[in-house]
Protein backbone atom coordinates (compact mmCIF):
# COMPACT_ATOMS: atom_id res chain seq x y z
CA UNK A 1 0.00 0.00 0.00
CA UNK A 2 2.86 2.33 0.72
CA UNK A 3 4.12 1.77 -2.80
CA UNK A 4 0.72 2.78 -4.13
CA UNK A 5 0.62 5.97 -2.10
CA UNK A 6 4.03 7.03 -3.32
CA UNK A 7 3.69 8.51 -6.80
CA UNK A 8 6.37 6.23 -8.16
CA UNK A 9 7.02 6.09 -11.87
CA UNK A 10 5.42 2.63 -12.15
CA UNK A 11 2.14 3.88 -10.81
CA UNK A 12 2.26 6.89 -13.10
CA UNK A 13 2.80 4.64 -16.10
CA UNK A 14 -0.35 2.71 -15.28
CA UNK A 15 -2.29 5.94 -14.94
CA UNK A 16 -0.96 7.07 -18.30
CA UNK A 17 -1.95 3.78 -19.95
CA UNK A 18 -5.45 3.98 -18.49
CA UNK A 19 -5.74 7.54 -19.72
CA UNK A 20 -4.60 6.44 -23.18
CA UNK A 21 -7.29 3.75 -23.07
CA UNK A 22 -10.01 6.28 -22.27
CA UNK A 23 -8.85 8.77 -24.88
CA UNK A 24 -8.28 6.22 -27.65
CA UNK A 25 -11.77 4.80 -27.12
CA UNK A 26 -13.48 8.19 -26.83
CA UNK A 27 -11.98 9.32 -30.13
CA UNK A 28 -12.49 5.87 -31.67
CA UNK A 29 -8.87 5.48 -32.76
CA UNK A 30 -9.38 1.73 -32.92
CA UNK A 31 -12.40 2.14 -35.18
CA UNK A 32 -14.24 -0.57 -33.30
CA UNK A 33 -17.18 -0.78 -30.89
CA UNK A 34 -15.24 -3.60 -29.21
CA UNK A 35 -12.90 -1.03 -27.65
CA UNK A 36 -15.12 0.79 -25.14
CA UNK A 37 -13.84 3.69 -23.01
CA UNK A 38 -12.45 2.83 -19.58
CA UNK A 39 -15.16 4.87 -17.88
CA UNK A 40 -17.87 2.77 -19.54
CA UNK A 41 -16.02 -0.39 -18.54
CA UNK A 42 -15.74 0.78 -14.94
CA UNK A 43 -19.44 1.60 -14.90
CA UNK A 44 -20.19 -1.93 -16.11
CA UNK A 45 -17.85 -3.28 -13.46
CA UNK A 46 -19.61 -1.34 -10.74
CA UNK A 47 -23.04 -2.40 -12.02
CA UNK A 48 -22.23 -6.11 -12.14
CA UNK A 49 -20.37 -5.98 -8.85
CA UNK A 50 -23.12 -4.18 -6.96
CA UNK A 51 -25.73 -6.40 -8.60
CA UNK A 52 -23.99 -9.31 -6.94
CA UNK A 53 -23.43 -11.32 -10.09
CA UNK A 54 -19.68 -10.83 -10.44
CA UNK A 55 -18.82 -11.33 -6.76
CA UNK A 56 -20.68 -14.63 -6.74
CA UNK A 57 -18.98 -15.82 -9.93
CA UNK A 58 -15.65 -14.68 -8.58
CA UNK A 59 -16.25 -16.58 -5.36
CA UNK A 60 -16.78 -19.76 -7.36
CA UNK A 61 -13.69 -19.15 -9.45
CA UNK A 62 -11.58 -18.51 -6.36
CA UNK A 63 -12.96 -21.58 -4.65
CA UNK A 64 -11.97 -23.78 -7.59
CA UNK A 65 -8.60 -22.09 -7.87
CA UNK A 66 -7.69 -22.56 -4.22
CA UNK A 67 -8.99 -26.12 -4.11
CA UNK A 68 -6.82 -27.01 -7.09
CA UNK A 69 -3.85 -25.04 -5.83
CA UNK A 70 -3.90 -26.68 -2.41
CA UNK A 71 -4.53 -30.19 -3.71
CA UNK A 72 -1.92 -29.95 -6.48
CA UNK A 73 0.55 -28.10 -4.27
CA UNK A 74 0.23 -30.59 -1.42
CA UNK A 75 0.78 -33.43 -3.89
CA UNK A 76 3.81 -31.57 -5.25
CA UNK A 77 5.33 -31.25 -1.78
CA UNK A 78 4.72 -34.90 -0.89
CA UNK A 79 5.97 -36.28 -4.20
CA UNK A 80 8.91 -33.86 -4.11
CA UNK A 81 9.92 -35.02 -0.64
CA UNK A 82 9.56 -38.67 -1.69
CA UNK A 83 11.50 -38.24 -4.95
CA UNK A 84 14.31 -36.44 -3.19
CA UNK A 85 14.60 -38.69 -0.14
CA UNK A 86 13.77 -42.11 -1.62
CA UNK A 87 15.61 -42.50 -4.94
CA UNK A 88 13.63 -45.64 -5.79
CA UNK A 89 10.39 -43.62 -6.09
CA UNK A 90 12.07 -41.29 -8.51
CA UNK A 91 13.28 -44.18 -10.64
CA UNK A 92 9.73 -45.59 -10.71
CA UNK A 93 7.70 -42.45 -11.35
CA UNK A 94 10.18 -39.81 -12.50
CA UNK A 95 9.80 -40.51 -16.21
CA UNK A 96 5.99 -40.40 -16.06
CA UNK A 97 6.14 -37.04 -14.32
CA UNK A 98 8.66 -35.69 -16.82
CA UNK A 99 6.44 -36.77 -19.72
CA UNK A 100 3.33 -35.13 -18.30
CA UNK A 101 5.07 -31.91 -17.31
CA UNK A 102 5.50 -30.32 -20.77
CA UNK A 103 1.86 -30.90 -21.79
CA UNK A 104 0.10 -27.54 -22.04
CA UNK A 105 -2.73 -28.18 -19.62
CA UNK A 106 -5.42 -26.03 -21.33
CA UNK A 107 -4.89 -28.08 -24.50
CA UNK A 108 -6.00 -31.28 -22.79
CA UNK A 109 -9.16 -29.86 -21.27
CA UNK A 110 -11.52 -31.16 -24.02
CA UNK A 111 -10.28 -34.77 -23.69
CA UNK A 112 -10.24 -34.44 -19.90
CA UNK A 113 -13.95 -33.65 -20.12
CA UNK A 114 -14.38 -37.27 -21.24
CA UNK A 115 -13.16 -38.56 -17.92
CA UNK A 116 -13.89 -35.83 -15.44
CA UNK A 117 -16.93 -34.00 -16.74
CA UNK A 118 -17.42 -30.27 -17.09
CA UNK A 119 -17.73 -29.11 -13.56
CA UNK A 120 -15.67 -28.79 -10.44
CA UNK A 121 -13.98 -32.20 -10.64
CA UNK A 122 -12.47 -31.40 -14.03
CA UNK A 123 -11.55 -27.82 -13.24
CA UNK A 124 -10.01 -28.53 -9.86
CA UNK A 125 -8.03 -31.38 -11.42
CA UNK A 126 -6.76 -29.14 -14.20
CA UNK A 127 -5.71 -26.47 -11.72
CA UNK A 128 -4.20 -29.12 -9.46
CA UNK A 129 -2.11 -30.49 -12.33
CA UNK A 130 -0.96 -26.97 -13.14
CA UNK A 131 0.05 -26.25 -9.55
CA UNK A 132 1.70 -29.63 -9.05
CA UNK A 133 4.78 -29.18 -11.22
CA UNK A 134 6.28 -25.88 -10.02
CA UNK A 135 5.79 -26.99 -6.42
CA UNK A 136 7.32 -30.40 -7.15
CA UNK A 137 10.39 -28.94 -8.86
CA UNK A 138 10.98 -26.42 -6.12
CA UNK A 139 10.45 -28.90 -3.32
CA UNK A 140 13.02 -31.25 -4.83
CA UNK A 141 15.45 -28.36 -5.14
CA UNK A 142 14.70 -27.48 -1.52
CA UNK A 143 15.45 -31.01 -0.31
CA UNK A 144 18.80 -30.90 -2.07
CA UNK A 145 19.57 -27.64 -0.29
CA UNK A 146 18.93 -29.03 3.21
CA UNK A 147 22.12 -28.86 5.27
CA UNK A 148 23.71 -32.29 5.65
CA UNK A 149 24.73 -31.25 9.18
CA UNK A 150 21.11 -30.58 10.11
CA UNK A 151 20.14 -34.08 9.02
CA UNK A 152 23.12 -35.66 10.80
CA UNK A 153 22.12 -33.65 13.88
CA UNK A 154 18.74 -35.33 13.81
CA UNK A 155 20.35 -38.73 13.54
CA UNK A 156 22.80 -38.19 16.38
CA UNK A 157 19.85 -37.50 18.67
CA UNK A 158 18.20 -40.72 17.56
CA UNK A 159 15.37 -39.01 15.66
CA UNK A 160 13.72 -41.29 13.12
CA UNK A 161 13.23 -40.80 9.37
CA UNK A 162 9.68 -39.47 9.43
CA UNK A 163 10.27 -37.06 12.26
CA UNK A 164 13.43 -35.82 10.56
CA UNK A 165 11.45 -35.32 7.34
CA UNK A 166 8.73 -33.41 9.11
CA UNK A 167 10.85 -31.31 11.47
CA UNK A 168 14.09 -30.79 9.57
CA UNK A 169 13.62 -31.41 5.84
CA UNK A 170 10.16 -29.90 5.45
CA UNK A 171 10.82 -26.62 7.28
CA UNK A 172 14.19 -26.27 5.57
CA UNK A 173 12.48 -26.69 2.17
CA UNK A 174 9.67 -24.28 2.96
CA UNK A 175 11.32 -21.24 1.32
CA UNK A 176 11.57 -23.30 -1.88
CA UNK A 177 8.05 -24.68 -1.49
CA UNK A 178 6.74 -21.14 -1.12
CA UNK A 179 8.59 -20.06 -4.23
CA UNK A 180 6.91 -22.93 -6.07
CA UNK A 181 3.51 -21.93 -4.74
CA UNK A 182 4.05 -18.35 -5.84
CA UNK A 183 4.55 -19.51 -9.43
CA UNK A 184 1.66 -21.96 -9.10
CA UNK A 185 -0.66 -19.26 -7.79
CA UNK A 186 -0.21 -17.09 -10.87
CA UNK A 187 -0.72 -20.07 -13.17
CA UNK A 188 -3.69 -21.35 -11.19
CA UNK A 189 -5.77 -18.21 -11.66
CA UNK A 190 -5.09 -18.22 -15.40
CA UNK A 191 -5.85 -21.91 -15.80
CA UNK A 192 -9.02 -21.76 -13.70
CA UNK A 193 -10.40 -19.00 -15.90
CA UNK A 194 -9.32 -20.77 -19.10
CA UNK A 195 -10.98 -24.00 -17.95
CA UNK A 196 -14.15 -22.08 -17.19
CA UNK A 197 -13.99 -20.47 -20.62
CA UNK A 198 -13.67 -23.80 -22.38
CA UNK A 199 -16.17 -25.96 -20.57
CA UNK A 200 -19.20 -25.75 -18.39
CA UNK A 201 -21.24 -22.88 -17.13
CA UNK A 202 -19.21 -21.74 -14.16
CA UNK A 203 -17.37 -18.77 -12.84
CA UNK A 204 -15.74 -15.69 -14.24
CA UNK A 205 -14.32 -17.52 -17.25
CA UNK A 206 -17.73 -18.55 -18.53
CA UNK A 207 -19.07 -15.06 -17.88
CA UNK A 208 -16.20 -13.64 -19.91
CA UNK A 209 -17.02 -15.79 -22.94
CA UNK A 210 -20.75 -15.26 -22.62
CA UNK A 211 -20.25 -11.50 -22.62
CA UNK A 212 -17.92 -11.77 -25.57
CA UNK A 213 -20.49 -13.72 -27.56
CA UNK A 214 -23.25 -11.37 -26.50
CA UNK A 215 -21.23 -8.47 -27.93
CA UNK A 216 -20.99 -6.78 -24.54
CA UNK A 217 -17.45 -5.44 -24.66
CA UNK A 218 -17.69 -3.25 -21.52
CA UNK A 219 -18.70 -6.24 -19.38
CA UNK A 220 -15.95 -8.30 -20.95
CA UNK A 221 -13.24 -5.74 -20.21
CA UNK A 222 -14.68 -5.20 -16.75
CA UNK A 223 -14.04 -8.87 -16.08
CA UNK A 224 -10.53 -8.61 -17.47
CA UNK A 225 -9.78 -5.65 -15.19
CA UNK A 226 -11.22 -7.52 -12.26
CA UNK A 227 -8.97 -10.49 -13.01
CA UNK A 228 -5.91 -8.28 -13.32
CA UNK A 229 -6.59 -6.62 -9.98
CA UNK A 230 -7.38 -9.97 -8.42
CA UNK A 231 -4.15 -11.51 -9.70
CA UNK A 232 -2.17 -8.57 -8.36
CA UNK A 233 -3.95 -8.73 -5.01
CA UNK A 234 -3.45 -12.46 -4.68
CA UNK A 235 0.25 -12.11 -5.32
CA UNK A 236 0.61 -9.28 -2.82
CA UNK A 237 -1.36 -11.23 -0.24
CA UNK A 238 0.78 -14.27 -0.83
CA UNK A 239 4.00 -12.29 -0.40
CA UNK A 240 2.75 -10.89 2.91
CA UNK A 241 1.79 -14.37 4.07
CA UNK A 242 5.18 -15.71 2.98
CA UNK A 243 7.01 -13.02 4.95
CA UNK A 244 5.13 -13.97 8.08
CA UNK A 245 5.46 -17.71 7.69
CA UNK A 246 9.16 -17.56 6.76
CA UNK A 247 10.20 -14.66 9.00
CA UNK A 248 13.37 -16.58 9.93
CA UNK A 249 14.32 -17.03 6.30
CA UNK A 250 13.97 -13.36 5.47
CA UNK A 251 15.85 -12.41 8.65
CA UNK A 252 18.70 -14.73 7.62
CA UNK A 253 18.73 -13.26 4.13
CA UNK A 254 18.87 -9.73 5.50
CA UNK A 255 21.78 -10.77 7.75
CA UNK A 256 23.74 -12.26 4.87
CA UNK A 257 23.36 -9.11 2.84
Amino acid sequence: MRALARPSSGFLLILALLLLWEVSARFDWMNSPNWPPLSVVLAALARDSLGGELPLLLGGTLWRMFAGLLAGGAAGVIVGLLFASLPVTRRLFGLTVELIRPIPIPAIIPPLVLFLGLDNTMKVTVVGLTAFFPVLTNTMQGVRAVEADALAMGRTFGIGFWRRSLHIVLPACLPYVFAGFRVALALALVVTVVAEMIAGEQGVGHYLVLMQFAGRAPEMYATVILLAVLGYGLNRGFLAFERRALHWYFALGAQRN
Binding site: A148, A152, M153, W248
Partner: peptide
Protein backbone atom coordinates in the same frame (compact mmCIF):
# COMPACT_ATOMS: atom_id res chain seq x y z
CA UNK B 1 28.65 -31.71 18.27
CA UNK B 2 29.10 -30.05 14.87
CA UNK B 3 31.73 -27.60 13.83
CA UNK B 4 29.28 -25.35 11.97
CA UNK B 5 26.61 -24.37 14.46
CA UNK B 6 24.89 -22.24 11.78
CA UNK B 7 24.19 -25.40 9.84
CA UNK B 8 23.14 -27.66 12.67
CA UNK B 9 20.91 -25.20 14.54
CA UNK B 10 17.42 -24.91 13.09
CA UNK B 11 16.80 -21.26 12.16
CA UNK B 12 13.00 -21.61 12.32
Amino acid sequence: VFQQYTRSLLPW
